[in-house]
Amino acid sequence: MKIVIAGGTGFLGESLEKYFKEKDDQVYILTRKPKRDHEVYWDARTLGEWKNTIEGTGVLINLTGKSVDCRYTDKNKKEIYTSRIESTGILQEAVDQCNMKPKVWLNASSATIYIHSETQLNTEENGTIGDDFSMNICKSWEKEFFMVNNESVRKVALRTSIVLGNNGGAFPKLRTITKLGLGGKQGRGQQKVSWIHIDDFCKAVEWVIDNENISGPVNITAPNPVSNEDLMTKMRKHLKIPFGLNAPVWQLEIASLFLNTETELLLKSRNVYPEKLTKNGFHFSYPDLDEALYNLLKN
């Protein structure tokens, strides 16, 4: 299988590349800074030689977008928005020009598209989508993606939750603060954390590719969200750290300034359920957080 991953040099892209290469698939990466033979230059805004890489590919995966782990200044907000919309738009132009179009196109989205909810479980069909900066980014991103309907190209928006893995993302930071004795609850601690083990993320992407009846938005998350307080309690248990200082909201506001991030990333309640995956027979290797943490921390 020939797979092209746009914006594939981050944590998720590198994990997918390794996963598919181990299955002897042919993987190409579109990146601004190509360093290896299978990496192809693109600027994520304009057509170029890179569009030839998409010709005849089986799978196109777009993970391009500025990280939301930053302060929401006007400049950063604009970059978060344009990096997602422009890359999706220019990929569509390239796909339109292909004689042999990709069979399936998976575009990144986020479980953040749903409202802050501590009680309501948000599924693809019944989830409530709200109206603030982060949710509007996701809505605009998906609107751009689904705007054009190429009959031969199956499109799936990956509404991905927090991905837990040792090589990037949020998990190494969680591990560090827990070891430092700062692994108490954040804020009230009742906000839900939707999460997925990196192995299940890769498996779910492969499963979506293989299942031709799956299209539209798909929640890429484990079936058992936990509260922030439960998450930190389990982190301390698995790391054998006897205590963890709680962090009230005012402390998080100050810390987020120094860490150049936003408290929303910790305090928003993402209560998301993978209804399409579970209803259609996807099997999670790590459906429960204890199993996932044991696997990630055993080494």
Rank of each mutant, 00 (worst) to 15 (best):
N52Y: 10
N52P: 00
T53V: 15
I54K: 09
I54G: 02
E55T: 02
G56R: 10
T57N: 11
T57A: 15
G58W: 02
G58H: 13
V59I: 11
L60V: 06
L60A: 07
L60M: 06
I61Y: 03
I61V: 14
I61N: 12
N62P: 10
T64C: 14
G65Q: 09
G65H: 06
G65D: 12
G65S: 11
G65L: 05
K66G: 02
D69W: 07
C70G: 06
C70S: 13
Y72H: 12
T73D: 08
D74Q: 13
K75A: 14
K75R: 15
K75D: 14
K75P: 02
K77G: 10
K78S: 12
K78A: 12
K78F: 06
E79P: 08
E79G: 06
I80K: 07
Y81G: 00
Y81W: 11
T82F: 08
S83D: 07
S83P: 03
S83L: 05
R84I: 02
I85Y: 07
E86H: 13
E86I: 04
E86V: 01
S87A: 15
S87Q: 13
T88W: 03
G89C: 11
G89M: 09
G89N: 15
I90M: 12
I90T: 14
I90R: 10
Q92T: 15
E93V: 05
E93I: 05
A94F: 01
V95H: 06
V95A: 07
D96N: 14
Q97H: 04
Q97M: 12
Q97A: 14
Q97K: 15
C98R: 10
C98E: 10
M100Q: 15
M100G: 13
K101S: 10
P102Q: 08
P102V: 04
P102S: 08
K103G: 09
K103I: 04
K103E: 15
K103A: 06
K103D: 12
K103V: 05
V104G: 04
W105L: 11
N107E: 14
A108C: 13
A108I: 12
S109Q: 06
S110R: 04
S110E: 02
S110G: 14
S110N: 10
A111L: 00
T112L: 03
T112E: 01
T112Q: 08
T112Y: 01
I113E: 01
Y114S: 06
I115E: 14
H116L: 04
H116V: 08
S117Y: 04
S117K: 11
E118W: 00
T119Y: 08
Q120H: 13
Q120L: 09
Q120G: 03
L121F: 08
L121I: 14
T123I: 08
E124C: 06
E125S: 13
N126W: 07
G127V: 00
T128V: 13
T128R: 05
I129A: 03
I129D: 01
G130C: 02
G130N: 03
G130A: 02
G130T: 02
D131S: 01
D131Y: 00
D132Q: 01
F133P: 03
F133G: 08
S134F: 03
S134P: 00
M135T: 09
N136C: 01
N136G: 00
I137K: 05
I137H: 00
I137M: 04
C138F: 01
C138N: 05
C138G: 03
K139E: 07
K139W: 00
